[in-house]
C-alpha cells in the first residue's frame, strides 16, 4: 500500500514540476503581459496543487495535510486576483500587443467613455 502511495506521490510531484516548468517557459515566451498572466495563473496553480498532493501523499499526517490544504486554498483564491490586478494595470498602461488582438471590446468601451466625457484620457468604466 505504501509503495503504491509513494509511486502516486512521485508521479504527482513530477507532473507538478513539469507544469510549473511549462508555466515558467510560458512567462518567458508569451508576447505580452496579458498572455504571460495566463501562464502565471493556470499551469502554475495546477502545478503547485499537484506538488502539494504529492507532498501530502508522502507525509500522511493529519496536520501536515491541513497545512497543505491551506496553501492550496490560498493559492486558488489569490492567484486569479493577482493575475487580474497585473493584467488590468498592463491593459491600462497600454502594455498590450494591440496588433495581436482579434477583437478589443474593452478598448471600444473605453474610447466611447472618453468621447462622452470629452476628456483626452479614458476614465475607468464605473469601477
Amino acid at each position: 500500500m505504501n509503495d503504491v502511495l509513494d509511486v502516486v506521490s512521485a508521479v504527482c510531484l513530477l507532473l507538478g514540476a513539469a507544469l510549473s516548468l511549462a508555466a515558467g517557459i510560458g512567462v518567458l515566451r508569451f508576447p505580452d503581459v496579458l498572455s504571460r498572466m495566463h501562464a502565471a495563473s493556470k499551469p502554475q496553480v495546477l502545478g503547485l496543487l499537484l506538488v502539494l498532493i504529492g507532498v501530502g501523499l508522502r507525509l500522511r499526517t493529519g496536520f501536515d495535510i491541513t497545512t497543505l490544504v491551506l496553501v492550496a486554498v490560498f493559492q486558488l483564491a489569490t492567484a486569479p486576483v493577482a493575475a487580474h490586478m497585473v493584467g488590468r494595470s498592463a491593459y491600462r498602461t497600454r502594455r498590450v500587443r494591440r496588433d495581436l488582438l482579434l477583437v478589443d471590446e474593452l478598448g471600444e468601451r473605453l474610447d466611447e467613455a472618453a468621447r462622452r466625457d470629452g476628456a483626452g484620457d479614458a476614465p475607468p468604466p464605473a469601477a
Binding site: A23, G26, P43, L100, E105
Partner: peptide, 24 residues
Amino acid sequence: VVRASVEVATLAFRRDQEAPTAVI
C-alpha cells in the same frame, strides 16, 4: 482547470508566439 493548464502549457511550447489574442 486541468484542461486550461494543459492548454496554456502547450501554447508555451508552440513555435509561433505571434498568434492572435482577444479582449471581449
